[in-house]
Amino acid sequence: MAFLCKAVEVIDAIARTGNLMVGVPDYDTYVRHHEAQHPGEPVMSLAEFHRNRLEHRYGGGPNRIARCC
């Protein structure tokens, strides 16, 4: 049973690493960090989190320059 639990942890870590490598942030990690480092402050919803990460990665707002690369 311990082997199975460890295997699941390893697979989960590989999946998180792969997602981060292609630019998919981890919402659960964000929530844990935010609650530990910023207690009492509101946590973004999953939709807000993804919108925030997309804007951070690709830019956003009125000063955004649209380009293909």
Rank of each mutant, 00 (worst) to 15 (best):
S45T: 15
R16W: 02
G59L: 06
V43Y: 01
V22Q: 04
H38S: 12
R51H: 05
S45C: 02
E41V: 12
A13V: 03
H38P: 09
G61D: 04
H33L: 13
G60K: 02
A15W: 10
L54Y: 10
H50N: 09
A66D: 13
N19P: 01
D28M: 03
P39R: 03
V10K: 15
F3Q: 14
A15Q: 13
E35N: 12
G40D: 11
G40N: 12
G23I: 07
V43C: 10
P62R: 03
M1D: 08
G18H: 07
A7N: 12
S45Y: 04
G59D: 13
G18F: 06
E9V: 00
A2N: 11
E55R: 11
V10Q: 15
I65F: 03
A47Q: 12
R67Y: 15
R51L: 08
G61E: 06
N52M: 00
L20F: 02
A2H: 06
P42V: 05
G61S: 05
H38T: 13
V24T: 14
L54C: 06
A13I: 00
L54N: 05
E41Q: 14
P39W: 06
A47P: 05
A36H: 13
M21A: 12
G23W: 13
I11P: 02
Y58I: 00
D12G: 04
A13N: 12
I11H: 14
